[in-house]
Design a protein around this nucleic acid. Sequence first.
RNA 1: AGCCCGUUGGUGAAGUGGCUUAACACACUGCGUUCUCAGCGCAGCAUUUUCACGGGUUCGAACCCCGUACGGGUUACCA
Length: 472
Amino acid sequence: MKTRTRFAPSPTGFMHIGNLRTAIFEYLVAKHDNGDFLLRIEDTDQTRKVDGAIDFIYDTLKLCNIEIDEGPNNEGEYGPYVQSERLDIYKKYALELVEKGHAYYCFCTENELEEMREKANLRHKPFLYDGRCSKLSKEKIEENLKNGVPYVIRQKMPKVGETIVEDVIYGKIKIDNSILDDQILLKSDGFPTYNFANVIDDHLMAITHVIRGKEYLDQSAKYNLLYEAFGWEKPTYIHVPMVLGSDGNKLSKRNGDASFMDLYNEGFLPKAIVNYLVLLGWSPEENKEVFTMDELIKAFNPKRIGKSSSTYDIKKLEWFNQKYIKELNDEEYLAFIKPYLTYDISGKSNEWVDKLLLIYKDHLSYGKQIDEMVKIFFEDSISISKENEEFLKSDENIPIVIKTYHDELEKLNNWDVDAIAEVINIVKEKTGVKGKLLYMPIRIKISGVEHGPELPDEIYLIGREKVLDRLK
RNA sequence: AGCCCGUUGGUGAAGUGGCUUAACACACUGCGUUCUCAGCGCAGCAUUUUCACGGGUUCGAACCCCGUACGGGUUACCA
């Protein structure tokens, strides 16, 4: 049987880092076996629907180099791939279950349910629907249906025994049937619940490996019962541990850096994000951590996914990102970084801008950092801190160094980095000053601060006129 | 409250009974890089035999068993 996995997000317009990691795992499992990876949109909760969300998901996955074999925008033979377009299918199967005695109509109102819930609460017991509607007579059901009384369809759970969920990562999980709620399969608005639609679609779409967050592990008992009721073969379950925020809590949408798009907009390369995420909860056999997508496909073995949740650490992501930025060639790098430069460059030559940006290629953790780094090249006036002023007065050689450098630089005909560097050497010879006392005074005089790129580069970029002026 | 799962340094983790005096990477710290540096190089970093804690099994345990604690998940006409 051909391996088929699916990514089944709700169309909310956000892609959580945890969701994306699950998608990556799903993709890798499929591609490792030369299988299919599909996208299915779970929009059974109409209140959460967001326009354009499907395209957003396509865009995100495309950026990550994850190809969708079948989905709403490229349908295969198992469509439709949007759950709200499959309502009649769910209804048909729900009724089949009713017929078989594994499900029943329930006419209970919100108020009735609320009452039951409160009672359960008082006794500190989890709420379980008491199944009263399963005892309704055929006639009563007919009558209610005829009168248009709103209904849901509930799954009839066994009251005794246990159901076993077999998971690739967590092994065999035993769930006592007595704690299983007669969960709703079909809502009164005619939409299926996630729990139902999922099972139906996974089966109908010939999904072989169901990969999802660990929060669904317990629930899989209910799904198994559904598969059994239909007489369908169960998929292979791979429940993956959760990703927590750096505070140890569940990632939330509020936390900006937990969303893929936010990271992307900050200037993180999708390759770096994918590489980082895949190592969150999974480790390869060989001792290696930088992977291309092709290498991941080859190396990925879901059995090596861990059981415990992991904490998202942006520092390591930054390290990966820096590594990937360095690997870009100059052209790619410039195309990547230019949008993050917000200073006005209209008066500057392309060559100047490129040179400036290139200096920082090996130093950036993410794109947005560029502005802060190039600040000194865009500010007209410089201010020298008190400490630095004092430093300039701390040695009698310093004024001589500055004066000599100024005069030598003035004599220079060609303004290029090598020549500027050579001038520093001349000053060293003439004054006999070297090291910190040579470089630092010049650096502070021309930029105001003690940090920056290599001095010749810095001098070159600031420009002849300004440098000479500041050295006076 | 019931049920399920987890617990190896600040983080990702390797390790599944002797090869572990617990890899590797990030972070951090120090040193070097004839100036700075978020870059590069090197070193240090679980040290009350230590893998949450306490017992047990075993000649031998991070690895097996039991209990405790802590963390997370779940118990919706949300997914």
